[in-house]
C-alpha cells in the first residue's frame, strides 16, 4: 500500500478524533489571537505618543519570544494546572509581539499632517483615534494579527505535552510509537492538518482584510 493510501485509511477510521483535535487547535488560534489582539492593540494605542513605555512594552513582548516553548508551556503548570490554560497563556505571550509591533508601526506610519488636519477640523482625540489613526493603521495591524494566528497554529502543537490537546496529539502519539504501524500516518496527520488549517486561516484573514480596508488605502 502506498503512503498516501495508508494515510487516507488511517484518517477514515478516526474522523471523530481528527475533527475534535482540529477544533481544539482552532479554539487555541481563535481565543489566543483575539485575546492577544485586544491586549496588544490596547497597549500599542495607549503608548503611541510616548517613546519610553512604547519601547518597554515592545522589549517585554520580544523577551517572551526568546523563551524556549517547552519552558514557557510548563512554567505556568504550578499556578493553573495542566490542560488548556498553561497552553493558552504560553501561546498568548508568543502572539503579543507581532500584533504589538505592527500596531506601533502602523500608528507611527500615519502621516502627521493627516492627524494635524483632523485636529484642526475639531475632531476629538477619540474621534481622531477611531476614525483616522486606527483605520489607516488597520492593514498593518491586521498583517500582525495574521502572523500571530499562523504562529499559534504552529506552536500550539506543543500543547499536547501539557495535556492541552490539539493536533499535536497526533504528532506526539506517532513519535512515541515509531516505528510501529500507523505511527508515520499519525505524524502526517498532525503536520498536514496544521498546514491546511494555517492556509485556511491565512486566506480567510486576507479576505477579512479586503473587506475591512477602505479602497482608498488598499494596495
Amino acid at each position: 500500500m502506498s503512503g498516501i493510501e495508508s494515510w487516507f485509511e488511517y484518517l477514515s477510521k478516526r474522523w471523530d478524533l481528527v475533527a475534535s483535535t482540529l477544533l481544539e487547535t482552532l479554539g487555541y488560534v481563535v481565543s489566543v489571537t483575539v485575546a492577544a489582539a485586544i491586549v496588544a492593540i490596547t497597549v500599542g494605542v495607549l503608548t503611541r505618543n510616548r517613546a519610553f513605555p512604547r519601547e518597554l512594552s515592545l522589549a517585554i513582548a520580544s523577551v517572551f519570544l526568546t523563551i524556549p516553548s517547552l519552558a514557557l508551556f510548563t512554567i505556568f503548570i504550578p499556578v493553573v494546572g495542566l490542560g488548556f490554560w498553561p497552553s493558552f497563556i504560553a501561546l498568548f505571550l508568543y502572539a503579543l509581539l507581532p500584533i504589538l509591533r505592527n500596531t506601533v508601526t502602523g500608528l507611527q506610519g500615519v502621516d502627521s499632517s493627516i492627524v494635524e488636519s483632523a485636529k484642526g477640523m475639531g475632531m476629538t482625540r477619540l474621534q481622531i483615534l477611531f476614525k483616522v489613526e486606527l483605520p489607516l493603521a488597520w492593514p498593518v495591524i491586521l498583517a500582525g494579527i495574521r502572523v500571530s494566528a499562523m504562529l499559534t497554529v504552529g506552536i500550539s502543537a506543543i500543547a499536547t505535552l501539557v495535556a492541552g490537546g490539539g493536533l499535536g496529539d497526533f504528532i506526539k502519539s506517532g513519535l512515541a510509537r515509531l516505528p510501529l504501524p500507523n505511527s508515520l500516518e499519525a505524524i502526517w496527520t498532525g503536520v498536514i492538518l496544521s498546514l491546511l488549517l494555517a492556509l485556511a486561516i491565512d486566506s480567510s484573514m486576507r479576505g477579512l482584510g479586503r473587506l475591512t480596508t477602505s479602497a482608498g488605502v488598499r494596495s
Partner: peptide, 30 residues
C-alpha cells in the same frame, strides 16, 4: 478648542486629506 476649530476653516500645505475616505466624505467631515 474643538468647538472653536469647527467654526474655523484650516488649510495646511500638506492638505492632510483622509486617504481612506472619499472626496465627498472628506468634504463632509466638519
Amino acid at each position: 478648542p474643538n468647538k472653536l476649530r469647527r467654526q474655523i476653516g484650516y488649510v495646511i500645505q500638506q492638505i492632510g486629506l483622509f486617504p481612506h475616505r472619499t472626496i465627498a466624505e472628506n468634504i463632509g467631515t466638519v
